[in-house]
Computed example of a mutant assay.
Amino acid sequence: MEEIQIITPEELKKKLEEGEKLELVDVREDEEVAQGMIQGAKHIRMGEIPVNLDYFDKDKEYIFICRSSARSGNVCYYLQEQGYKVRNMVGGMLAWPGETE
């Protein structure tokens, strides 16, 4: 299986602070997201990714986020196999040093 590209929470925070436009997708459950999401992230639960494939554009790169980066990693493998550009935020929200909304 091909390696998944990753990004650290610190790298992501820096990019966002520099105003970089990134496609963030949070794949946690509703009750987890209610406790706070990274600003600008889109919420698509892991189980709903397959029915939401039309949301994703193969020309864009998406950064996937979950609580600890296990679920987002699974989503990354799944989408990468289908030709999408993906990156997994390692450590997940447990490691996120920035603010949430």
Rank of each mutant, 00 (worst) to 15 (best):
R71Y: 04
L16D: 06
E10T: 15
G40I: 06
D30N: 13
Y84E: 08
E23G: 06
N74S: 12
E81F: 07
I44H: 00
D59H: 13
Y78V: 04
E17L: 08
L12F: 07
I7E: 00
I44G: 01
V51I: 10
S69T: 08
G92S: 13
S72Y: 01
C76K: 01
G92A: 08
K60R: 09
E32N: 03
D54T: 10
E11K: 03
K58S: 04
E3D: 15
N74H: 12
L24T: 06
T100Q: 06
A41V: 06
K21P: 05
I6K: 10
L24P: 01
V86C: 05
E31T: 14
N88Y: 06
I65N: 00
P97E: 08
V25A: 00
G83P: 02
F64N: 03
R71H: 02
D26G: 02
E32Y: 09
E23N: 10
S68Y: 11
K42P: 10
G83F: 03
M1N: 14
G19K: 09
E10N: 10
I38R: 00
G47K: 03
V86T: 08
G36M: 08
I4W: 08
E48S: 12
Y84Q: 12
D30H: 12
P50F: 05
Q35S: 13
K85Q: 15
H43D: 07
S68E: 08
K13L: 11
N74A: 13
E101S: 11
A34Y: 04
I44P: 01
L12H: 10
I49E: 02
L16E: 02
N74L: 14
P97W: 02
F56C: 01
C66F: 08
V27D: 00
E20W: 13
S69P: 04
T8D: 03
V51A: 08
D59I: 13
C76S: 05
Q5R: 14
R71E: 00
Y62H: 01
Q5K: 15
E11H: 02
V51P: 13
K15P: 11
D26R: 04
E18S: 15
G73P: 05
I7D: 00
E11Y: 05
E10V: 14
E29D: 06
K60P: 07
G98W: 10
E10S: 13
Y77T: 14
A70N: 14
D54E: 12
I63S: 00
M93A: 04
G83E: 03
R71P: 04
N88K: 05
E101I: 15
G19R: 10
C76R: 01
Q82I: 12
Q80A: 13
G73E: 04
L94Q: 11
V75G: 02
R87G: 10
Q39L: 15
K60T: 14
P9M: 08
E18C: 11
V27I: 06
P50R: 10
L24D: 01
T100V: 15
M46C: 09
G98D: 08
L22A: 07
